[in-house]
Design a protein around this nucleic acid. Structure first.
Length: 1028
RNA sequence: GCCCGGGUGGCGGAAUUGGUAGACGCAGCAGACUCAAAAUCUGCCGCCUUCACAGGUGUAUCGGUUCGAUUCCGAUCCCGGGCACCA
């Protein structure tokens, strides 16, 4: 017998002698009932303490074992704390980490906090509490909550993005990017000095990328003034500043995020929001577009994820074509350049649309159209980009009055502006081909522009047809050619004639890297004479100054612009007052975990080489494009610059789904006196009718159909003898579902006493119960067993819907092991699913049954050393195989049911044998580490093994196939695809044998009705199908 | 609007490569134990017809491929996520 629960565990002297253990075991007989049951609270606390004190989760950078790096997308520590949806991915990664550890890997599984961000700042504005203070508090809370669940994090490696020791290196990397340019010749990020060398030697010829780049010779370069040189270099830096548009809200004096803008006005306060150009920092991620695309082929992300990233990058092949503006003589404004992916449709161009922001708009607009264009520009200014792309039903635009010529047939083409053409994509101008593009078609119809059909029967006049298979008509030299083939012909001709060229475009834009906010990394940049200079690395970290108020600075600048003595740098010049966005710190945190305390480097190269890529990354799909692309780009830049030896950060990515809340609804009937005059209206508003009545779900279902008919509702309620207003003509009844806190509900049954106590208004509520009993105000328990049944709805987990479930509560009630397994049991990690606390009982029962295989409540330890039977070994090895397999492919939910099946079967076999249970215990460890460690201890005590070895480092048991071999199988036998009977056959049965047995079978003969089967399909180890 | 994902019993889900649809669990029903309750144990549990045997039907809807479709193809409907300053 053993007794560890009784032991006051002192972890330093934890190793008990065998003699001592036996003594304890004998003593334990006295306190049998205490120690025999599965006391998870005690067990979990004890082992968590033990693991902490023994440094069980400490990870070394130096190990003979193969490495494995498991990473979670680290959380933003919000004030609301964790709800049961958050740990889903953490539990999955924890199980996988522990699984890998049992399989002999040195596993890095760190956790930290993405602790810069807007919510903390918003909270500071509202409450005056400094973001550093609230962030610290929130992190503390997260720590407690995470620790409760028993994760195997090495907390000594924790990082926080808002910690100066961390953001020093974020700033450092920014400076590397600032001091770099992207060399297209060798596709590498290089130090800006190599560019300066090129300029000095040969001018800009070799590195010019587009029409907007300045062209100059080596002599020119040398003659340039410092400011000019810096301006040119800025056009090449990987981190660069330029002017860009932001959502500017004059009334709030601040810049708003997209999701703070609704229908052109601010979400808070409804003030007008317009676009405003401001100096911004950007990352030149577009230079990495192709590598980001190619890199996807070397990583293991879901196809959906890769697809999303590809779409975001949006690589397209097409042509740029110059259209001559009629009436203009060449020169600067002589042409409008369009980008098209369908140059084959050039003869179908009936009009041209340029973005309202296009620089040529003001030059080409004719005096007659000036008014209309300006009116339209005013409208566009109030529209967000998303709105502009989303609302295609609403067609808007304005005619500039100008015409261009079709480069091949000279046809005059009217030039319009419309919001559906975006300035940032392509050249900001399109050639519109209404017969082939639906948006162009709608636009043409709306503005009565005649449509040219170049695709014959493929076009029906009702809608556009984007086919590439049509044979071209009305298309000059392209007549008779299939569109698909015409594309190249046109491009070649354009290039020959010098009026266009082949062009690859990306929808992706450079990443905006400035935020006009306080709670983020300050830029290590000082402006002198209008030129941005990097701080010296020795001056890092540039710490965020302490602020008391967080209001915006002048002219839309961030709060830092209000702190003059910070803004003015010691050596002269002004600091950048923008801060970096949320994804700055999160773009490289996976590197810092490897070497979190390094004072001299962001990560030691040797350490980075040891850990290498993250082998498994788990997080939500909401980061599919943003965070993942930025992070991938940073990794490529750091690789080019020699900091690390790999250029893709995450080898495998698993996306966890969301756990939604399961809301509970009460159905409230409000009785309102109909207003005859203002006085009564006032009365009605004050609820001067009677108490609200809450009806149970069955009544709601009956009432919902008559909810607009007050008299019928009152009629329905009459049998309940409620004291209701009698003059039916003068009252109105409303039926409203309202959210009730899920903590007040057991399953769908309302906990009436708790409900009464939760709010004063509920104290006085009248409840009509499911079977028709009525509970008057203040009354709680009905005489007979009747219940109030709530409605249920699946929605996002949020405070306002009262459906948030805190993991602490669950852990307290059922234990961390149960919680961990239940989260997994809910369904596939990748899938979204609702939380239902009720179902957790099943998992908890499983753990108790599991416990009972080892320890009986009455008899104590029931383990035996008897040899296992073949049946028992089969159960064991079937389970090992299934668990290893399921865990490896992240199918944790089926693994949990495999454990349940196994325990049910061992129960039926009354198996308490160590030979079977010990391997099983090791299998369970990743899922339920606490109970496993406890039972492992018990098992070792039973065997009288001296040293307490932790189960964390046990060896994962191997599958022995020999116990799984079968010689026969029960085959389902179908007739025409419908199963009619079963037949047990030897596994090496031949087709002929099967056919003979089939035709002899009674049931099958019945279906054959004397005919011979047309065909007998026999798939070995699967099924048999008889075709009649 | 565009991109991505998902629709299977009362509920969460299983069916790994086209081969017995509903494993496992919750809820429910019936029984055992108990003075009683809880806990525990046993059995039943998609829908329809049937005392039963058995039969029909069934994986959002419609259509197709196949000996055989939850799985593959086409169309439609519904729900969730993302769309560049929320993180």
């Amino acid at each position: 017998m053993f007794s560890i629960v009784d032991q006051r565990i002192n972890c330093r002297s934890y190793e008990l002698t065998t003699a001592h253990r036996i003594k304890c075991s004998k003593q334990s007989g006295i306190k049998r009932t205490e120690i025999m049951e599965y006391d998870f609270r005690h067990i979990e606390k004890k082992w968590q303490q033990f693991w902490r004190d023994s440094g069980a989760y400490k990870v070394s950078n130096d190990s003979g074992k193969p490495k494995f790096y498991v990473l979670d997308m680290f959380p933003y520590p919000s004030g609301a704390g964790l709800h049961v949806g958050h740990p889903l991915g953490y539990i999955a990664s924890d199980i996988y980490s522990r699984f890998k550890r049992l399989n002999g890997y040195n596993v890095l599984h760190p956790m930290g906090f993405d602790s810069f961000g807007l919510p903390a700042e918003q909270y500071a504005i509202e409450t005056g509490q400094h973001p550093a203070v609230t962030t610290e508090k929130n992190i503390h809370r997260y720590h407690e909550q995470l620790d409760n669940i028993g994760f195997c994090y090495d907390w000594s490696r924790e990082v926080r993005t808002s910690d100066p020791g961390y953001y020093k290196w974020t700033q450092y990397i920014f400076l590397q990017l600032f001091n770099s340019w992207y060399n297209r010749h060798n596709d590498r990020t290089e130090n800006i000095q190599t560019l300066v060398d090129i300029f000095e030697r040969e001018g800009s010829q070799l590195v010019v990328r587009g029409p907007r780049d300045t062209i100059f010779s080596a002599e020119d370069w040398r003659s340039y003034h410092e400011v000019q040189q810096q301006e040119i270099l800025m056009q090449y830096r990987v981190a660069y500043s330029a002017f860009g548009e932001v959502n500017w809200c004059e009334a709030l004096g601040t810049v708003l995020a997209n999701d703070e803008v609704v229908n052109g006005v601010s979400e808070r306060g409804g003030h007008l929001v317009v676009k405003k150009k401001m100096r911004q920092w950007y990352l030149r991620i577009t230079e990495y577009a192709d590598r980001l695309l190619q890199g996807l082929e070397r990583v293991d992300y879901s196809d959906a994820m890769k697809e999303m990233q590809r779409n975001w990058i949006g690589k397209s092949q097409g042509a740029e074509i110059d259209f001559k503006i009629n009436g203009e003589t060449a020169g600067e404004h002589g042409f409008i350049k369009v980008y098209t992916t369908r140059p084959d449709t050039i003869f179908g161009v009936d009009f041209m649309v340029i973005a309202p922001e296009h620089e040529l708009v003001k030059f080409i607009t004719t005096p007659a159209q000036k008014n209309e264009i300006e009116k339209y520009l005013g409208y566009v200014k109030s529209r967000s980009e998303r709105e502009r792309m989303a609302e295609v039903k609403q067609i808007t635009g304005a005619f500039t009055g100008a015409y261009v010529s079709n480069p091949f047939d000279g046809r005059a083409i009217p030039v319009w502006i419309s919001e559906y053409v975006l300035a940032g994509y392509g050249t900001g101008a399109i050639m519109a081909v209404p017969c082939g593009d639906q948006r162009d078609f709608s636009f043409a119809k709306h503005f009565n522009i005649p449509i040219t059909n170049i695709i014959g029967n493929f076009y029906n006049g009702e809608e556009a047809n984007p086919t590439k298979d049509a044979t071209l008509q009305n298309s000059g030299f392209l007549d008779g050619i299939v569109m698909r083939e015409a594309i190249d012909i046109v491009i070649n001709k354009l290039e020959e004639q010098g009026i266009g060229k082949r062009q690859i475009n990306y929808r992706m834009r450079d990443a905006g890297f400035s935020r006009q906010r306080y709670w983020g990394e300050p830029f290590p940049i000082v402006y002198k004479g209008g030129v941005a200079y990097a701080l010296d690395e020795k001056e890092l970290p540039l710490e965020l100054p302490y602020l008391d108020t967080y209001g915006p600075g002048p002219e839309g600048e961030g709060p830092l612009a209000n702190v003059l003595d910070w803004e003015i740098a010691p050596g002269g010049g002004r600091r950048e007052t923008n801060t970096m966005p949320g994804y700055a710190g999160s773009s490289w945190y996976f590197l810092r975990y490897m070497d979190p305390h390094n004072q001299t480097e962001l990560v030691d190269r040797k350490v980075a080489d040891y850990w290498g890529q993250v082998d498994l990354y788990i997080g939500g799909t909401e980061h599919a494009v943003g965070h993942l692309l930025y992070s991938r780009m940073w990794t490529k830049a750091l690789y080019d610059l020699g900091f690390i030896g790999f250029d893709e950060p995450y080898k495998k990515l698993v996306n966890q789904g969301m756990i939604q809340g399961s809301s509970r609804l009460l159905y409230r009937l409000n009785f309102r006196q109909n207003a005859v005059d203002a006085d009564q209206e006032q009365q009605a508003k004050q609820g001067a009718g009677s108490n609200p009545v809450y009806v149970s779900h069955s009544h709601y279902k009956a009432l919902i159909n008559i909810k607009d008919k007050t008299s019928e509702i009152l009629e329905y309620l009459r049998p309940f003898n409620l004291e209701l207003p009698s003059n039916t003509g003068e009252i109105t009844v409303d039926l409203n579902p309202i959210h009730v806190d899920v903590a007040l509900v057991d399953g769908v049954e309302l906990d009436i006493p708790a409900f009464r106590q939760s709010k004063p208004e509920y104290e006085s509520a009248i409840l009509v119960l499911e079977e028709g009993q009525v509970l008057l105000p203040g009354k709680s328990l009905p005489e007979a067993a009747d219940r109030y049944i709530c409605g249920a709805e699946t929605e996002k987990m949020s405070k306002s819907k009262y459906n948030v479930v805190n993991p602490d509560e669950i852990v307290n009630r059922y234990g961390a092991d149960t919680f961990r397994m239940y989260e997994m049991f809910l369904g596939p990690v990748e899938q979204s699913k609702p939380w239902d606390t009720k179902g957790i009982e099943g998992v908890h029962r499983f753990l108790r049954k599991f416990w009972k295989l080892f320890i009986d409540e009455q008899k104590g330890l029931v383990l035996t050393n008897d040899a296992a039977t073949p049946a028992e070994l089969k159960v064991l090895h079937k389970t090992i195989k299934k668990i290893a397999d399921d865990t490896e492919r992240f199918s944790f939910n089926t693994a949990v049911s495999a454990f349940m099946v196994c325990v049910n079967e061992l129960n039926d076999l009354r198996c308490h044998k160590v030979e079977v249970l010990e391997p099983l215990l090791i299998l369970l460890t990743p899922y339920a580490p606490h109970i496993s460690e406890e039972l492992y201890y018990a098992l070792n005590a039973f065997r009288g093994i001296g040293d307490q070895r932790s189960i964390l480092d046990a060896a994962f048991p191997p599958v022995e196939e020999k116990y799984l071999v079968e010689s026969s199988k029960e085959y389902p036998v179908s007739v025409n695809g419908k199963v009619r009977t079963n037949l047990t056959l030897s596994l090496d049965a031949s087709q002929q044998e099967v056919e003979e047995l089939i035709t002899a079978n009674e049931t099958i003969q019945k279906w054959l009705e004397g005919r011979a089967p047309k065909k007998v399909i026999y798939v070995k180890n699967k099924m048999i199908n008889v075709v009649i």
